[in-house]
Amino acid sequence: MTPALKTSPKENRETVLRLARAAGFDLVGVTSAEPLEKGGERLRRWQEAGMSADLGYMQRPVELLSNPKKLQKSARSVISLGVSYYGGDHPENIGAGHVARYAWGRDYHDSIKERLLRLRGDIEAELGTRVKARAFTDAVPLLERSAAQRAGLGFFGRNACLISREVGSYFFIADLIIDLDIEPDAPGEGTCGRCSRCMDACPTGAIREPGVVDARLCISYLTIENRGDIPPDLRERIGDRAFGCDICQEVCPYNKTKARKTGWSDFLPEAGAGPYLDLREVIAVRTEEEFERRFGGTALTRPGRAGLVRNCCVVAGNLRLGSVLPALEEALRSDDSPVVRGHAAWALGRIDGGRRALTEALEEEPDGGVREEIEAALGRS
């Protein structure tokens, strides 16, 4: 490597912005590595209100999640980056399971990490010196949206998403925590004005107040991070959403005018599972090996096999699809997971022709919780 260039924070900023854009990132901003005080206070209030459900990584100490230097002691700056994952409008597909846009293609963790590491190498080559940098996207204990807001990428909307005036809110956030002095950006500013479309449209009322989402009610949490049962009183409100939810973003005026089609082929539908799931096919998945063959390398592995099958059972019940009855009956009879069997029972109770399988299963079912689901589906509870 050539001798290190003596560059100013302003020159470092110009270098970082140019290289980040060249690497394909749609948004780039810089903030200091000092604690994220405003974000930390928001997190503290949210935790104390009990809205984190069982998200263990969001229940960690505020002092850890809000301080970049807890992740890298030598950190001087945080380079915050955004990349659009918007693949366009959802195509019409009645009778299938709706997948949130961010999961249409390849798993973003892998794709973005590869480019982040290349970007770090490009910065080193340009400056002629080694830099210590930690590269990640949604994978370490840091309030990434708060860092991105302070780095100027956008402002917090009423739905708690970070909204960019350039690309709306359909974008992944990635970071390089780096031991380099870089001139920072001004924090992102903006407002939703009087608009409350996201709050009005949320099927479960998860947006409790502007900028505050209760994970216990959020469809994205219920279908992705939640490993147990989906509360019965929330199942119907999930509708056809088999993985995640875009409703609060779909109704946002910024996305109607600013959403930018992704330039990364990894995030297009053809790179992964696409915008919909075939309910019968997913409900029929019985082994972890088959699950990995079908969904490995995509974000759909996040809830695990049982979680994704559970979700598809709920969607089948909500859509009252007689065509899925055989798959639901087989899941109730033979799936290893009580969570799957319980949700298959719930779905069968909502579809004409499902009572026979429920009655037969009640005699054989060993799990008390599943028996309760069957009895409820039969109207006996």
Rank of each mutant, 00 (worst) to 15 (best):
E290Q: 08
L319F: 03
E63V: 00
K10L: 15
S196T: 14
L55F: 07
L64V: 06
A135R: 01
L43F: 01
R101M: 09
R302K: 15
D138E: 07
R130E: 00
C248S: 06
A135D: 10
K38E: 15
G349V: 01
D107C: 00
R44K: 15
E144M: 15
P187D: 06
S111D: 14
M1I: 10
G322Y: 09
C218G: 11
L81Q: 02
V16Q: 02
R235Y: 00
C161R: 11
E363Y: 05
R197P: 11
G128Y: 05
L71N: 02
K70V: 06
E375P: 10
I238G: 03
K258D: 13
D54N: 11
L300F: 11
D107M: 03
T7A: 08
V315Y: 11
T298D: 06
R44V: 12
S111V: 13
D89R: 09
F291H: 06
L268M: 12
A357K: 07
V315N: 03
S52V: 15
W46G: 08
A151L: 06
A147D: 00
L321K: 05
R45Q: 08
R355Q: 08
S146W: 03
R237W: 13
L279N: 00
T262L: 00
G368Q: 14
R356D: 15
R294M: 04
A327P: 15
A361W: 01
L142C: 03
D110P: 14
F155R: 10
R333S: 11
G353L: 02
G272M: 04
V131K: 00
S111F: 10
K258I: 10
A344M: 08
L64P: 04
I224T: 09
E288D: 12
N311S: 10
R21N: 07
E183L: 07
R101V: 12
N318W: 03
P68L: 05
A201E: 15
F295M: 12
T31A: 05
A316K: 01
Y276F: 15
A259G: 08
C312R: 00
G39T: 09
Y221M: 08
D185R: 00
L358G: 02
D214C: 13
P203W: 04
R118Q: 10
A273W: 12
R333K: 08
E236M: 12
Q72H: 13
L43K: 11
A133N: 12
W104R: 10
A148R: 05
W104Y: 10
G39D: 03
R286V: 09
L319Y: 04
L180E: 07
R101F: 09
L332K: 00
L268H: 11
L332V: 09
L319Q: 07
I247W: 02
D352N: 15
T223G: 05
L234H: 01
I351T: 10
D233Q: 15
G157R: 06
C161A: 14
N226F: 13
K38Q: 13
R320M: 04
R118P: 07
E329I: 03
